[in-house]
């Protein structure tokens, strides 16, 4: 007891340290699942074959990295995959104003039940998985059972169904359309929330000055939403190379593979399907570097222009 009083600063007696001990198991979990995998980056330096010890594999140094640019076929692949990645990301960025417009014009609907119904029903697709989106695509567009083909055939417009899903044409546009179908209503919610923050007196003052509906939208609503838009735009620029793979994976087939393979899907196809563990790891390391750089650039430009960081 006496020693306790004397050494009051003993680590174990500090509340903060005991709290740290209590939460220690969770910190370990973070280490195991987020930090420990980084060790796997060494595989990029070897010609790793699954099942062998790393020490028995050939050391390549930066060979896997240079291969992307030195090997003709690998380079062709990388160029194609980068085209798909940037192409689809840029379509997304070019149309990033859509959720804002959705929110703005939705607010112009005066009937509250109608507005609520639209808002509720259009957000549902956001909460289904990509596998299910694919199943929906199948239900709507497959040759024999698809709604669209059945409708067109029943109306006598078509004699035979069109195979929309296996087409290699307009892949980027189709992927964008599915992404929009799934995400538009949900993305608009952020703006719907921001709309409530706009000072109502501005509208009243504008009405007194004789401003019409479109003028109010253009001069009050849109400027009020731009800060939100700007943050989201910067985030989408930061995610330029992070398309994710799930959507493209479920929609990919032999016909559209050339145009649908984005960087994340390429890494998966090379590594998990093609068992090129080392090469795939090298590609994903480069991707991480680009992605972190973009994040910093986006954050810097946010700091410079708005005086605030985005994360």
């Amino acid at each position: 007891m006496k020693s306790n009083v004397k050494k009051k600063t003993r680590l174990i007696d500090q509340g903060g340290f005991r709290l740290w001990l209590l939460s220690f198991p969770f910190l370990i979990l973070i280490f195991l699942f987020s930090y420990l995998p980084l060790y796997g980056w060494v595989y990029a330096l070897f010609d790793y074959k699954p099942g062998r010890a790393l020490t028995d594999c050939k050391f390549l140094g930066l060979g896997n990295f240079t291969r992307m640019f030195a090997d003709k076929y690998a380079l062709e692949d990388i160029v194609r995959v980068m085209k798909n990645t940037l192409g689809m990301s840029l379509i997304g960025i070019a149309t990033s104003g859509l959720p804002m417009m959705f929110a703005v014009f939705l607010a112009e609907i005066k009937s509250k039940p109608y507005r609520k119904a639209v808002q509720t029903l259009t957000t549902i697709p956001n909460f289904i998985s990509w596998v299910l989106v694919y199943s929906v695509a199948y239900a709507m567009f497959s040759v024999n059972d698809g709604f669209v083909n059945r409708l067109l055939m029943n109306l006598g417009i078509l004699d035979e169904g069109i195979n929309f899903l296996a087409s290699g044409e307009h892949v980027w546009l189709n992927m964008w359309l599915w992404g929009t179908w799934k995400g538009l209503g949900w993305s608009a919610i952020m703006y719907i929330a921001a709309l409530t923050g706009i000072d109502q007196e501005q509208y009243e003052a504008a009405a007194v000055d004789g401003a019409g509906r479109m003028q109010k939208i253009w001069h009050i609503t849109i400027p009020g939403l731009l800060p939100t838009y700007f943050v989201l735009l910067l985030l989408s620029i930061a995610n330029l190379v992070n398309n994710g793979m799930e959507q493209y994976f479920v929609f990919q087939n032999a016909m559209n593979k050339e145009y649908i393979e984005v960087l994340d899907l390429y890494v998966y196809n090379q590594g998990m399907v093609g068992i090129n563990y080392s090469y795939s790891t090298a590609v994903s390391i480069l991707k991480s570097i680009v992605s972190v750089t973009l994040l910093f650039v986006a954050n810097m430009s946010s700091k410079l222009t708005r005086g605030e960081s985005i994360f």
Partner: peptide, 15 residues
């Protein structure tokens, strides 16, 4: 910080 990086599919899988 773990929100802003990940090791990639293969290192994650091996882990």
């Amino acid at each position: 910080i773990t929100m802003y990086f990940n090791a990639g599919i293969i290192p994650w899988f091996i882990n």
